[in-house]
């Protein structure tokens, strides 16, 4: 079983945060196929949040085919996300480390590096983010 937490200082809606945390737990292998997600009631008790938020998050995961709800029983994991892109992590990390080194060499401090990453991340539309490879 996993625990959810909410960060109310980000602009991310609570249901997005819950769905993300489920996906993250799947990627990291903390949730496996057949596992049950916390019931709506349990999440509401833990986080003191609106039950509709939890339902919305679970519905989104259901749409993605990640989980399935069985009426009267709960919501269960249908497929794992572990391994998805995991192989390329090492390579991506290497090129990011390289990029970081060149950023520091160029005289950027940590804050500027983060700002540059964030603005680039937010400005590049998602379609562009997949597809082209940036070798900078």
């Amino acid at each position: 079983m996993i625990d959810f937490h909410l960060d109310t200082h980000t602009g991310a809606p609570p249901y997005v945060q819950i769905a993300q945390q489920v996906r993250q737990a799947l990627r990291l292998g903390m949730l496996r196929v057949g596992d049950q997600l916390p019931t709506v009631r349990e999440v509401v008790e833990k986080l003191a949040i609106n039950p509709n938020t939890v339902l919305k998050a679970y519905r989104e995961l259901e749409h993605e085919g990640v989980v399935a709800s069985r009426p009267g029983q709960g919501t269960f994991v249908l497929r794992s996300l572990a391994g998805e892109g995991l192989a390329s992590h090492a390579m991506l990390r290497r090129s990011l480390t390289q990029w970081l080194r060149s950023a520091y060499d160029a005289g950027l401090d940590e804050e500027s590096v983060l700002a540059l990453f964030q603005t680039t991340f937010h400005q590049a539309p998602r379609e562009q983010r997949t597809g082209e490879e940036d070798t900078a």
Partner: peptide, 12 residues
């Protein structure tokens, strides 16, 4: 937080 939790449980 406790009050809102009770309220949300009641909504469920």
């Amino acid at each position: 937080r406790d009050f809102l939790r009770t309220l949300m449980e009641a909504v469920v």
